[in-house]
Simulated scan of single mutants.
Amino acid sequence: MDSIISINGLSKIFGHRRALNNINLEIGKGEFVAIFGPNGAGKTTLLKVMSTIIEPTRGTVLINSIESKKDPSKIRGMIGAISHETYLYDELTARENLVFFSRMYGIGKNEIDERVEDILKSVDLFQRADDRTASFSRGMKQRLSIARAMLHHPSILLMDEPYTGLDQHAAENFERVLMNTGNSGMTRIMITHNIERAFELCDRMLIMDRGEIRFDRSKKDIGTVENLKEKYLSIMAKDTDAEGLSNL
């Protein structure tokens, strides 16, 4: 499998704290990767480095063979991002939000209307296109945030705790939309504490702790979600905080 993300010797230091410690990682085109770990393990920092929001202290990050430090703006155009924050404007309608972000992404004027209509249909929000986002449920906002992240047809989708605040029904809708993105060969990377849901969705599992990747296996090699949970617990041992274990 061709790599779309290649990370070598990556470290990130904030003051006296080492958030990432000599990470080496290859992620192939089209892979769906889950990243687990306790709070403070470096998961979010790793995604922020991938998306060029922050620069590494040492090491190199190649996205589609482009070094992140040399052309960060081009890399940002390849990436869509979803987190527990939707980054939507409540006073705007769903359509107005997507038109605004289409312009931010530099999508041509002649393409915007069709692109927005298609993406609203794909996330089952076309019937609510002209309703203000403030009236949406948490699950609907999360689906709209997926639409926002995919407007520019990114090669990579980065997700940081996307399940936050979603009930069972909303989570299932979110997953249905998310799985449809795989049809385009998009590479997806998701940080989550929800091991069971991630195990169903993803084809590769990483466990981070103290700024390092301690475990990296395919779902096929792991076998069962119970095996993954046991491995997580063995890595964390007594150092894992209560919150890091609560959703196992």
Rank of each mutant, 00 (worst) to 15 (best):
V123S: 07
I54Q: 01
M236N: 10
R204S: 13
L88Y: 04
A19F: 09
R188W: 03
F215T: 05
Q168Y: 15
H152L: 05
A134R: 14
T224E: 11
R103T: 00
R138L: 12
S83V: 08
E230I: 01
K231I: 11
R115S: 10
K220C: 00
S122Q: 12
R58T: 13
A149T: 08
F126G: 02
V123E: 06
E55V: 06
F126E: 13
I75V: 11
E85D: 15
M140G: 07
H152N: 11
N39W: 02
V225M: 05
K12W: 04
H153E: 12
G30P: 06
S65I: 03
A171Y: 02
V49D: 00
L25M: 13
M50Q: 11
K231C: 03
P154F: 08
R58D: 14
L62P: 00
G211I: 01
L157V: 02
E230Q: 12
I75K: 01
N173L: 12
K141H: 11
L206K: 04
R148F: 06
E172P: 00
I119C: 10
V99S: 04
A134E: 15
S68M: 04
M159V: 00
R95E: 14
G182Y: 03
D131W: 00
R76G: 10
P72E: 01
E230L: 08
E85T: 12
T187H: 09
G211K: 02
H84V: 10
Y232N: 07
V225S: 06
I191T: 10
K70G: 09
N22Y: 09
N227H: 11
N247W: 15
N39G: 08
E114P: 07
G165N: 07
A147Y: 08
K43Q: 01
I4M: 02
E226A: 13
S11E: 09
Y87W: 13
